[in-house]
Computed example of a mutant assay.
Amino acid sequence: MKNFSSQTSDSRQYGWRAMALAAATLLGLLGTAPAMAGDQGQPQMNLRRTDLTAGMYRIDTQLAVTERQREIGLMFRKEMPQQEGMLFVFEVPGVQCFWMRNTILPLTAAFVADDGTIVNLADMQPMTDDSHCSAKPVRYVLEMNQGWFAKRGIKAGTKLGGAPFGRQ
């Protein structure tokens, strides 16, 4: 840290003014950006959607494709219809880890390979920072209400269908 005590009061005052001006400019620039869901504790409800299938079951799926959309995920949602989920789409396969900070709903994450095969499932408790990771590198993670997969007998090895996986 730089010690400002050896400077004159005029140079200190100038330095603080310059920093204040820079901060104001930055805040002004940030303030012109549209507010996104999640910034104020609001759920994101208007993401692009696609239909996925798991055997005979249809899943109405919101797509979280940008970094910001993935960061917010299902945070702040108070309810979600049983046939609805969120598919997190990453640019390249990797070991994906999820937590439940600011997420009110109990969820199950299905870590999904490029061909639509569920690699592993993880039940996640609300409002925790516990980490839940894919067993191997994946590009997709599908979050559903906790129990949805189990009630339908869907487990690791099940193939999902839909546009992201090249199968309808």
Rank of each mutant, 00 (worst) to 15 (best):
T50F: 01
T61M: 05
V95C: 03
R152W: 00
T128E: 03
R101M: 00
L47N: 09
H132M: 08
G15P: 02
L107K: 06
D39H: 06
E79A: 15
A110S: 11
M127Q: 14
F165L: 13
Q40P: 00
M45F: 00
D60L: 09
M124W: 10
V119K: 01
G38N: 02
K151A: 15
Q146L: 03
D114N: 13
M100K: 11
A35T: 12
P126Q: 04
Q125V: 07
W148G: 04
F149V: 07
Q96Y: 06
A163Y: 03
T32D: 02
M75A: 15
N145S: 08
G162H: 08
K155L: 03
N102P: 09
V119M: 08
M36D: 10
Y57T: 04
R101C: 04
G162R: 03
T128K: 12
E143L: 06
A54E: 03
I154V: 15
V95E: 12
G161V: 05
P164M: 08
Q96V: 14
M86D: 06
I72F: 04
T50R: 07
F88K: 04
R167H: 13
M127Y: 08
Q13D: 03
F98S: 00
A110Y: 05
Q13S: 12
V119L: 10
Q96F: 00
L142P: 05
A24M: 13
V138F: 05
P126N: 03
G162W: 01
G147N: 09
S5F: 10
G85W: 01
A22D: 01
R17V: 10
G73R: 07
M100Y: 07
T25H: 01
Q62E: 15
Q96K: 12
L30K: 10
H132P: 08
A113R: 15
Q82K: 12
V89W: 08
M75N: 03
Q40E: 13
I154L: 10
E67C: 03
L21M: 12
W148Y: 12
R58S: 14
I104S: 06
Q82I: 12
L160V: 10
